[in-house]
């Protein structure tokens, strides 16, 4: 066989294939290395320095990490990010699931298209624009306070984004509103793929809607939920734009999140080392939160 078809021996063929593969991967890898790996390594290096970004630097060992993990303010800032997870992740996923279940039967018609479009709209608005628009609504003369006056709740009127109790939930709500679109569209699309006969069979067996939801919808949407949760957790932990536009981290440090603090530390305080250390810690936190979710929802064979 080998004699009649003069193909190169397997080892050479494999080498050629490998060369080809390397050639195909190289451009993407180079770009990835330039824009991701090298900056990552530089951040790691910077995080061990005492440096103002311009002048002389000196090694600080792990002291920047010790500061990140012991400084009360920085710990509160990291805590704020986790509080945002409630708003950015839990709210949109739950509401998205509810909407998807509710319109499951009417997916095909004009009603389904309209619903999906309306719910997806916030997603196409830039975060900064959403932040500004919501700031106006939260303003003293904004619609939120107007609505409260209208229903007779004058004593609840306040400057929402400047209030120590309500600023963080107010910011969280903006994120929930933006991310609801993404979650809904993913979940609605996912639910459409679940075989309708499953629901029919369940009905015949006497299942109530909550049983259908628990035993058919939820398992069927495992992967979509996984994607939603992953994306929104990353958005929450690494949020910057909404907070920057809406509150600049105030009042006090009630709404300051790690993304904002990294930027401030690096460019206002000129503590590039500490900023990099916080960035690395943030990256690890994101991985710690996201990897188990990825593991939990992956397809088991």
């Amino acid at each position: 066989m080998r004699a009649r078809t003069p193909a190169p021996p397997p080892s050479r063929r494999r080498a050629a294939a490998r060369r080809q593969a390397v050639l195909f991967i190289a451009p993407a890898f180079l770009a990835y290395a330039c824009f991701v790996l090298v900056p990552l390594c530089m951040s790691l290096f910077y995080s061990t320095l005492n440096w103002d970004g311009i002048g002389e630097w000196s090694f600080a060992g792990l002291s920047n990490y010790v500061t990140v993990l012991t400084d009360d303010d920085l710990l509160q800032i990291i805590g704020n990010a986790f509080e945002l997870v409630l708003w950015f992740t839990v709210v949109p996923v739950c509401v998205g699931l509810a909407v998807a279940s509710a319109i499951r039967g009417q997916m095909a018609g004009r009603f389904g298209t309209a619903t999906r479009t309306i719910l997806f709209l916030p997603q196409v608005i830039p975060l900064v624009a959403a932040g500004i628009a919501w700031s106006w609504m939260y303003d003293w003369n904004g619609v939120v306070n107007q609505a409260l006056v209208l229903v007779g709740l004058e004593d609840q009127v306040r400057g929402w984004l400047g209030n120590f109790t309500f600023a963080l939930p107010a910011v969280g709500l903006i994120g929930a509103w933006v991310l609801l679109g993404l979650c809904t569209i993913l979940l609605v699309t996912g639910i459409a793929k679940i075989d309708g006969s499953l629901y029919e069979a369940a009905k015949l067996d006497g299942a109530r809607p909550r049983h259908e939801f628990r035993f058919i919808t939820l398992p069927g949407l495992r992967q979509e939920i996984g994607v939603c949760v992953t994306v929104t957790i990353i958005q929450a932990l690494s949020s910057f734009d909404i907070v920057y536009v809406a509150t600049s981290g105030g009042p006090g440090i009630e709404t300051t999140v790690p993304g904002l603090e990294i930027y401030r530390l690096a460019f206002a305080h000129r503590q590039v080392g500490l900023a990099s250390a916080l960035a690395i810690v943030l990256m690890i936190l994101v991985l710690v939160c996201v990897l188990p979710i990825q593991w939990a929802v992956r397809e088991r064979k």
Binding site: G162, N163, F164, P251, G252, I253, R264, A268, H269, R270
Partner: peptide
């Protein structure tokens, strides 16, 4: 200092107004 406004006066004055300082 370069950062005393952002890291000192601003948050502390906001706390004073908010009644937590």
């Amino acid at each position: 200092t370069g950062a005393i406004f952002a890291a000192g006066w601003t948050p502390e004055l906001q706390k004073l107004v908010g009644g937590v300082q």
